[in-house]
C-alpha cells in the first residue's frame, strides 16, 4: 500500500514563493538573513512532506462493517484502523469506482464520531477500498492511501409504512395501494413467548415499556405465531420504475415484519426470487436480492404462476412501462 503525495493549492503557491525567493537570493549579494529565510521555508516544506507521508505510512485496515441499510437514509459504518494512528484524516469509500466521503478523524485524543455513509440509492455495490486522505501537518501536501477491501454495500429499498400506521418509507402511495395494503399474514397469537430487543418492523403495540425502561433499550413481547406460517407472493418486474420501487418497499416492510414471527415469505419473480424466514441469514439474502433487482421491459417474460399467491404490483402486470 503506497502513500501517494501531491502538493495542495497552498503548497503549490508556497513552492512558487520559495522559487521566487531563491531567484532573488541568487540575483543579489549573499545575505545571511535572506539565506535563513530560505532555509526556514525549505525546512517547513521538506519536513511537511516527510510528516505528511509519515502520517499515513503503516496505517492498516482492521475492520470495515458496512451493514445493509435502507435507501435514502444515512447509516453508521464500523471502521477500525490499525498500525500507526493517523491524525486529521478524511475517510472515504471507493464504491464501484465512486468516492464517497464518510467523515473525518481528528486523532488528537478526542472522541471520534463513527463514519457516516451518506444516503444512497437502492443498489448492490462493491466497496473496493477505504481511502484515507490527509493534509496534516502543514497543509502543504496531500497524502492519499487506499486500503483495499472487498465488501458488499447492500442498500435495500426503504420499507413502506407498516400496517400500524407509522411511516418508515421513502415513497408514498399515490394512485394505487401497492404500498399501503398489508399482505395477508397469519394472525399474531395472544400468547407471549418471551421478550426480545426491538427490531425494525415490530409493532409498537408489542412494546414492553417496563422492560424497556429497565434495560435502557427498546424491548418487545415475542408472541407465539398463529395461523398460516407461509406466504407466497409473485413480483412482476414488468412495470414502471416508480411502481416497481413501491412494490419493493412493500416487500421490504413485509420482510421486516417476519422477524420474530416464525413465518416465512416466498417471493416468486422473473429469474428467481427468494425465501425469507425468521432468521438473519435469509433476511440478509432477501435484502441483497431486493437491493440488486431491477425492473424489466414490458416485453419480458411473465413471472411464474403460483396458485393462490398474491401478485405485486397489484393493479398492473406490465404495459404501463415508463
Amino acid at each position: 500500500m503506497r502513500v501517494r503525495l501531491r502538493p495542495t493549492q497552498l503548497g503549490a503557491k508556497g513552492l512558487l514563493l520559495l522559487l521566487a525567493l531563491i531567484a532573488a537570493f541568487l540575483a543579489t549579494n549573499y545575505n545571511n538573513l535572506f539565506f535563513l529565510l530560505i532555509v526556514f521555508c525549505t525546512t517547513v516544506g521538506g519536513l511537511g512532506l516527510c510528516w505528511t507521508w509519515g502520517n499515513l505510512r503503516g496505517v492498516t485496515l482492521l475492520r470495515l462493517d458496512a451493514p445493509p441499510g435502507p435507501a435514502g437514509e444515512a447509516r453508521a459504518l464500523g471502521l477500525e484502523l490499525g498500525g500507526r494512528r493517523p491524525r486529521a484524516v478524511s475517510v472515504a469509500l471507493l464504491v464501484d469506482g465512486e468516492v464517497v466521503e464518510v467523515g473525518d478523524r481528528l486523532g488528537f485524543g478526542s472522541a471520534e464520531p463513527a463514519p457516516l455513509l451518506p444516503p444512497r440509492p437502492r443498489a448492490l455495490a462493491q466497496i473496493t477500498a477505504v481511502r484515507l486522505t490527509s493534509r496534516f501537518p502543514f497543509g502543504l501536501f496531500r497524502a492519499r492511501l487506499d486500503l483495499p477491501v472487498a465488501a458488499e454495500l447492500v442498500t435495500h429499498p426503504a420499507p413502506a409504512a407498516n400496517h400500524h400506521g407509522h411511516r418508515r418509507a421513502a415513497h408514498t402511495a399515490t394512485d394505487d395501494d401497492d404500498g399501503d395494503q398489508p399482505l395477508p399474514q397469519g394472525r399474531r397469537g395472544s400468547a407471549v413467548a418471551g421478550l426480545r430487543p426491538f427490531r425494525s418492523g415490530d409493532s409498537f403495540g408489542d412494546m414492553h415499556w417496563k422492560a424497556t425502561a429497565r434495560r435502557g433499550v427498546p424491548i418487545v413481547r415475542e408472541r407465539e405465531p398463529e395461523g398460516d406460517l407461509r406466504c407466497d407472493l409473485v413480483l412482476d418486474r414488468r412495470c414502471p420504475e416508480q411502481r416497481f420501487e413501491r412494490a419493493l418497499s412493500r416487500l421490504m416492510r413485509d420482510l421486516a415484519a417476519l422477524r420474530g414471527s416464525g413465518r416465512s415469505l416466498v417471493v416468486h419473480s422473473q429469474g428467481g426470487g427468494f425465501v425469507a424466514r425468521d432468521d438473519r441469514k435469509s433476511e440478509l439474502a432477501a435484502q441483497r436480492w431486493l437491493a440488486a433487482t431491477t425492473s424489466l421491459p414490458a416485453a419480458a417474460a411473465p413471472p411464474p404462476h403460483v396458485s393462490g399467491a398474491e401478485r405485486l404490483p397489484r393493479s398492473g402486470h406490465g404495459g404501463r412501462h415508463g
Binding site: N32, L36, T43, L47
Partner: peptide, 28 residues
C-alpha cells in the same frame, strides 16, 4: 514539537551549510 523541530532543523542547516560570501549575484 513540530514547530520546535522546524526551528532546530533550520538552525542546524543554517549553521552547517557553507557560506558563499564572495557571491555577488548575477543582478549585481
Amino acid at each position: 514539537p513540530h514547530a520546535v523541530a522546524v526551528v532546530l532543523a533550520t538552525a542546524i542547516v543554517f549553521v552547517v551549510w557553507p557560506r558563499d560570501f564572495q557571491r555577488r549575484g548575477w543582478f549585481n
